[in-house]
Amino acid sequence: MQLAIFIIFAILCIFGSILVITLRSAVSSAIALVFVMCVIAGLFALVGALFVAALQVIVYAGAVMVLFLFIIMLLNLKEELISEDDKKFTRFLGIVLGTAFLFELAFFVRTALMRGSEALYEPVPKTLSSIAVISSELFTKFLFPFELTSVLLLIAIVGAILLAKKKNEK
């Protein structure tokens, strides 16, 4: 049962990502990416990482991708023209390398799990709700990175504003 759902999600995911990298229009790519993120959130939920799934939808799909769309529309990007692309070899090489990389990863996975893939699916114990556990970890074991991340976000905000500000030329 889980397997079937997983396969559906996986196919959707892969299809979506291929759409992301192949669609000509930037907006279309962005929408495809949003789709992929939602599917991935579904995957997270499938295995019981509910908090992360929610996070994925809210932050990633909801905020980051919206930001992307804003910028795309701000920059008024035209459709990418294929015809004057004279770096066909680079493309070809890129696909080849990517595939080679994939096969290598697969190889690693195979050897690593030679013992046979164990049954993964187990319902997350009700006593251990994912939010509670994550938050308790965050504020004890990962307190320092947590605080740092907040500083990082501050820096990102300030940086983004400063960078994108129009300079007053008078």
Partner: peptide, 27 residues
């Protein structure tokens, strides 16, 4: 049944697609 390997393979595929995307696209 669903196993770890499936997830890792999926992850690898998406990653590879991302890499190819970086190389292929000009925008």
């Amino acid at each position: 049944s669903l196993g770890l390997a499936h997830f890792l393979v999926l992850s690898g595929v998406i990653f590879a697609i991302g890499v190819i995307g970086v190389i292929i696209r000009r925008n």
